[in-house]
């Protein structure tokens, strides 16, 4: 494992911790898209079906468990916690995420590394992760003002993707048989979706003003 991959994983972990911190400390999930969170939980459940069949490393196994548990806990909290669920911006979170689900699954049936149950679900999780942030970005754009923790949550998610791209570039030049087009192309698409957000995040950071996205 190279330093870029590890940094990416740590950014991913940090984004989840920031989100948990926001929900627990403020007892509020305003500005957070439940649809995006549901999609992420599904991404991890579909991708880590290999938890029981393929062992890579203790690090991988622990991280997989952490991602599954934390993402389902966030969804559970937003739906079931008496206090937290009251702050959910339901009327703003109207993105049709079932469309993303159907499109990702259809693509996974067509483009996969092998036509097996696990490989189809793996490809599905890669495609779904690439677009799962869309409901969140749409919600932020609709609500206009973005609170600090929510902004940082999306920032760390984007940083995670950026480091994974550096990781692939590094692996491409250092490994002899590096070919993972499905993950790389989907990853590029996913990172591109953050470009706009990063631009406004940078502007607000530079001017030391509150993050605001144009309508």
């Amino acid at each position: 494992m190279n330093i870029f991959r590890f940094a990416g994983d740590m950014m991913h972990l940090t984004s989840i911790l920031v989100l948990l911190l926001k929900i627990y400390a403020t007892k509020s999930c305003s500005g957070i898209s439940l649809k995006t969170q549901e999609l992420y939980a599904l991404v991890f459940l579909a991708r880590y079906l290999d938890l029981f069949t393929d062992f890579i490393s203790v690090y991988n196994t622990i991280m997989k468990l952490v991602f599954i548990v934390s993402s389902t806990a966030i969804v559970w909290c937003m739906k079931r916690d008496r206090v937290v669920r009251r702050s959910y911006d339901k009327q703003l979170d109207t993105f049709r995420h079932y469309f993303l689900l159907a499109a990702s699954f259809a693509l996974a049936l067509l483009v996969n590394e092998k036509f097996t149950f696990q490989e189809i679900f793996w490809a599905f999780s890669i495609y779904l992760e690439a677009v799962a942030i869309l409901p969140q970005l749409v919600l932020l754009q609709r609500s206009g003002n973005v609170d600090n923790l929510t902004g940082q949550y999306v920032f760390f998610l984007g940083a995670y993707r950026a480091f994974y791209i550096l990781n692939w570039i590094y692996r491409y030049f250092t490994e002899t048989h590096f070919s993972r087009w499905i993950a790389c192309i989907s990853g590029l698409v996913q990172t591109a979706l953050y470009a706009d957000f990063f631009y406004y995040y940078y502007i607000s950071w530079k001017n030391n003003t509150k993050l605001k996205l144009p309508a």
Partner: peptide, 10 residues
């Protein structure tokens, strides 16, 4: 057949 890429990333 072609070997499937090992999914060693998260």
């Amino acid at each position: 057949g072609a070997a499937v890429t090992e999914h060693d990333e998260l």
